[in-house]
Structure formats: C-alpha cells, structure tokens
C-alpha cells in the first residue's frame, strides 16, 4: 500500500465541488424518486406542482402501495393480498417467491394471534403445497413451522423468534413494496440511499489515500481533519 497521505485543502476541494455538473433539476428528480418510492403521496403531488415535474407514476398507485405496506405493517395480510391483486392481478401469479412471502407472513400472523388451529390448517392447505412445488422455499417453510413447536416456549431460538418481531413485518412489507415498484418499472431502491452509500464507500476509500475535508451530511458543512 502506498501510505503517503496527501492532503487536499478545503479550498481545492470546494473548487472541485463547484465544478461538479449537477443541476437543480437533477436533484429534484432524486427527491421525486424518494417521495414516490417511499410513498409520500401528497408530498409527491405537491412537488410535481411546485417543481413543475412530470410524475413518474400515477399517484394512485403510490397510495395503494402505501396501503398495502401499512396493512402488512399492522399484520393485516389478507387486506394486503387483496390490494396487491387489485393493483396488479398478475403479480402474485408471476412472482412465486413474493406470494410465498405473503403466505408465510399470514401464517406468522396466525401464530401471533395465537390462532393455532387456523394456523395449522392454513399451513397444510396453502404453505405445504408451495413448499412442494418450489423446493427453494422448503427451508424457509421449515423455519416458519418451527414457530408451532416453540409456541409455548418462553425463549425460542433467535432465528425463530425474529419471525415474530416487528422487523419481520417490515421486511415483508419492504419486499412487497419493492416487487410492486419493479412491476411498475419504477426503480425499487431509493436513489438517495444509493447516494449516501456511495458517499460512505467513497469517503472510506479516499481516507486511506488522502486527507480531505469531511462532510457532515446533515448540515452540509465540512470539517477539516484534525491532523495539521
């Protein structure tokens, strides 16, 4: 490794910043992307007016997407499945993995509500069949079924317990959201998040090679490194 740490002054850095070719329109699109994907429907509507941007999707789809996400977050899988089918009747037929995820979540919700007999029946009627059809779901199916076994145990193994955590709901909701976005040929990853990651990645690599002003992301100010 070449460790000679070279130093980039704040002035030189600022000049480079100034030369970056980016326009307000570019940034507006990043904002719109975020509002749409994260489901800020009314904000997206206002923004398309105020910033004079053509919306990339129709706003109603944002609303139903959010409705689905919220339904999943509060555990109402049935409602979510119905709304998905309303929005895009083919989606679940074409995306088996997604369908399985939703059914799995539904099973988990039965367990959450201690409706064990219904859970069992549902597993036998719906889940087991999918596991047979698509072997790649089998291990996940087994992990889920273990919930039944550990139902009465106060401290189930973490891998099992996490299925009952709110994070699992969030995860499913996120996956459904992404699948719907994909079906609308809309990017499914928030570009602003990509930008933040790019920044982290770039700063880390550059830190190994040079000293340069570091950015405080939230207020846009720079701090020169402490070494002089």
């Amino acid at each position: 490794m070449p460790p000679p740490q070279q130093r980039i002054s704040k002035d030189a850095w600022e000049r480079r910043l100034h030369d970056v070719p980016v326009t307000k329109a570019d940034l507006n699109r990043l904002i719109m992307d975020y509002l749409v994907i994260e489901g800020y429907k009314s904000a997206a509507e206002e923004f398309s007016q105020e910033a004079n941007l053509t919306p990339p999707v129709d706003f109603e789809s944002i609303e139903s997407r959010m409705d689905i996400r919220e339904a999943l977050q509060r555990g109402d899988v049935e409602h979510a499945i119905n709304r998905v089918n309303e929005l895009n009747p083919d989606l679940l037929d074409l995306n088996h993995a997604l369908h399985f995820k939703l059914l799995q979540q539904k099973f988990i919700e039965f367990i959450q509500q201690k409706r064990i007999p219904e859970a069992l029946q549902f597993a036998q009627e719906e889940l087991a069949r999918r596991g047979e059809e698509s072997p790649e779901f089998l291990s996940e199916l087994e992990r889920t079924m273990a919930l039944l076994a550990f139902d009465a145990t106060p401290n189930p193994p973490p891998a099992i317990a996490e299925l009952l955590s709110p994070a699992q709901r969030m995860k499913t909701a996120g996956e459904v959201n992404a699948a719907i976005l994909e079906s609308l040929s809309q990017g499914k990853e928030v570009k602003l998040m990509g930008l933040l990651k790019l920044l982290c990645w770039g700063e880390t690599l550059l830190e190994e090679r040079a000293e340069f002003p570091k950015l405080n992301v939230l207020d846009g100010t720079f701090s020169e490194s402490s070494r002089s």
Partner: peptide, 12 residues
C-alpha cells in the same frame, strides 16, 4: 445540504 452531499460524493 443535499446538494453539497451530492457534490461531495461526486468529487470523492
């Protein structure tokens, strides 16, 4: 700040 962030990332 978002714009600075963008410019900073691009420059890095």
């Amino acid at each position: 700040p978002l714009e600075t962030l963008y410019r900073h990332a691009a420059t890095s």
